[in-house]
Amino acid sequence: MKKFVNDPANFVPEFMKGVVLANPDLLEFVPEFQMIKRKDRPVADKVSVIQGSGSGHEPAHVMAVGPGMLDGACQGAVFAAPPVDACYETIKALASDAGVLVLVNNYQGDRMAWETAIELAEAEDIKVKSFIINDDVAVKDSLYTVGRRGVAGNFFVIKACGAAAAQGKSLDEILAIAEKVNNNVRTMGVALTSCIPPAKGTTIFDLGDDEMEVGVGIHGEPGRRREKIHPANQIVDELFDAVAQDIPYKSGDRVALMVNGLGGTPISELYVLYAHAHERCEQAGYTVVRNYVGEYCTSLEMAGASLTLLKLDSELEAYLAAPAEVAVRIF
């Protein structure tokens, strides 16, 4: 393993410390609960939108804290849900009269930790609701499974809910917005390499030099199938078809199109993928109103990408266009 780490056990708090030192006016760090929150939140008349999940997906989730986005987030260890206490303390730290909305990605650990934390918070009369995000089409819903995973579509749920909260919408209104985004967003990813959690020190699965994992999860979970790597456009076709046919999207739809890097793929390659994904949208009669190319939800240094489509209406378009600020920036 070659990584920029000191003690692997301190990897998460050390990067969190860096985020806050780089954004001293905006953010504060509560090391005890591995929580980052906006300095100017909570306020009584605004809903606080929060999240908390395993690390290794940066910029999700703590680097998505800022005006118009999340008001606070706590981090677990790499790929592990935060402890119940951290979730509970994050709810408490952001509690407001207007309420707290917890956006939970659909993983068993995250769900159990937040369910327990919400029970504790409700026992103290804190107004809190949660919403489960599950945009990954690679995993089929079934009666017996935990269902679809929450992946890069999470960004759009955060963005829309954050904008609505900034405008002073009520907890129930913001919950309805989360539901609308989640109902209209679909994602599928592909991995070209595995990834190495710092505390583990070795790859989480093995993938041959000439292989790809189709439908990979953002924790390095094996996907649906492994096959020989194809040319980029063919990979886009497979992801696009799986995503577009799921809702399905239809000709005339206005969409947001995201090509998300999984951590180890250069931005140039992401734009190779974007070019063909954009063409596929045009061929299908979708108007790409907004586009997103870069890293939004990653798996450490995994080479790979995911493709996300979000079907828009005028309300969602306005929320996506609303101003926002997060720790990660290039200007």
Binding site: G54, A77, A80, T116
Partner: peptide, 15 residues
């Protein structure tokens, strides 16, 4: 356990 164990194991073993 609630304070220190993350992942699914925290809520399961804590409960």
């Amino acid at each position: 356990v609630s304070k220190h164990v993350g992942g699914s194991s925290g809520p399961i073993w804590g409960t």
